[in-house]
Simulated assay, not measured.
Amino acid sequence: MTIHPEIAKVLSTLPAPDGAPLDPAAMRAGEAAHVPPADQRLPLHAVDDATAVTPAGEVPVRIYTPAEAESYGLLVYFHGGAFFLGSLDTHDHVARSLAKETGCKVISVGYRLAPEAAFPGGLEDCYGVVRWAAEQGRSLGWDGRILAIAGDSSGGTFAAAVAAKAHDDGFDRITHQILFYPSLDLDFDEDRYPSMRENAEGYGLETAGLRPFNAFYLESGAEPTHPLVSPIKRNDLSGLPAALVITAEHDPLRDEGELYGRRLYEAGVAVTISRYDGANHGFVQNFSWIPEFYRAFEETADFLNGAAVNPGARP
């Protein structure tokens, strides 16, 4: 399927990459300039900023309560942005939509960004907030049933790594992991996945940009083959939480996400792999105003309610 016409319109306005060095501060400022004012955001029962006190330090979080209720499932959300972009504000609309559709109380994590905090800084923040959420369950109104984690793009890297780290630590409270077009293999090889070639140029995220984008996160000397850096490198995926893996047809990262889903299935994990045709990388953040792509939030709700987990995986 060709790229969705509304996405194509936006892509046609983007300047071609010029090969200039990336400037994190300028790029963050550019993102911040496009954040809509608070009165134009999806209304919820409550949205509160707080601080999670974790072993990694104090981590800012934003807590979204969809409606008044006696208790809630909890969904801890990690925003995307190639590890050096994104914030509680740039992905505020994603967290709001997740809360509205799932009925969960969503905790969005303002983790430390690279290059100021390279690996494992952001990962430690994300993991720490998940443990904090479980510990603060009573004050958060947790129903004790659902403790899900979700992330888009590099946030999906964190979600997969947090699920694995929790399993290895014997922390078994995480019930679901939702990975929106995740980056799971930072050991880049353009020939390893066909989607790296098929979607190399013209769809927003370009294959040639992956290495410089993620270099900030790896500046600590992190090894791309380490399974907490590249979760697809983990040998044993058994025992991990049920997974929803959402991919985009026109995304260089499509095939690694789908391969990870198949490997989870082969390891005995309940998995749904869902490819969104006509979509590109980042569609949940950038194009969820298109009804067929907003469906990703509804599919997440079905997954958390048990309706979307199937016994097989997309080949």
Rank of each mutant, 00 (worst) to 15 (best):
D236N: 15
E249C: 12
P241C: 12
I63A: 09
A243M: 09
Y217P: 01
V94S: 05
L304M: 08
R254W: 09
D152L: 03
T90A: 13
Y217K: 07
N214D: 06
L140K: 03
K105L: 15
P5G: 06
Q40P: 00
G30Q: 09
G221T: 12
D23C: 04
T247M: 04
A52C: 03
D255T: 12
N280Q: 10
L184D: 10
E223S: 15
N305W: 01
A56C: 05
E135V: 06
T247R: 02
K233H: 14
R112W: 04
G170P: 02
S87D: 02
N310I: 14
G151Q: 07
G155K: 06
D189I: 14
D185K: 04
Q177M: 12
V271G: 13
L259R: 12
V109A: 15
I273T: 15
I3V: 15
A114E: 04
G312L: 14
C104S: 14
E249R: 09
A161Q: 01
V47D: 10
Y193P: 09
G268E: 06
R192F: 06
A20V: 01
Y111G: 07
T90P: 01
T272L: 14
I290R: 04
D18I: 07
I107S: 04
A133P: 02
R131L: 05
G144W: 02
G221K: 10
L244V: 14
A161R: 01
R138I: 10
S12N: 06
W132K: 11
V245C: 09
G151H: 03
I246G: 05
F78T: 10
A16C: 00
Y111V: 08
V106T: 08
A69V: 08
E292S: 13
G239M: 08
A67R: 10
R254V: 14
R314F: 10
L14D: 08
F297I: 11
D189K: 05
F293M: 13
H91N: 09
A208C: 01
K100I: 01
D277S: 13
L88H: 04
G122F: 09
T13G: 15
A160N: 08
I178Q: 09
A301C: 12
T90Y: 01
G73K: 00
E206T: 05
A20M: 06
P252S: 13
L44H: 05
R138G: 07
V10L: 12
E219N: 11
S139R: 13
K105C: 15
Y181S: 04
S97F: 01
L259H: 08
L264K: 06
D39W: 01
L123C: 11
G121Y: 02
P21M: 11
A267V: 00
G278V: 08
G282M: 07
T157K: 02
V10E: 13
A148T: 12
S97Q: 13
Y193A: 07
F216W: 03
E101V: 07
A8S: 15
P17F: 07
G30F: 00
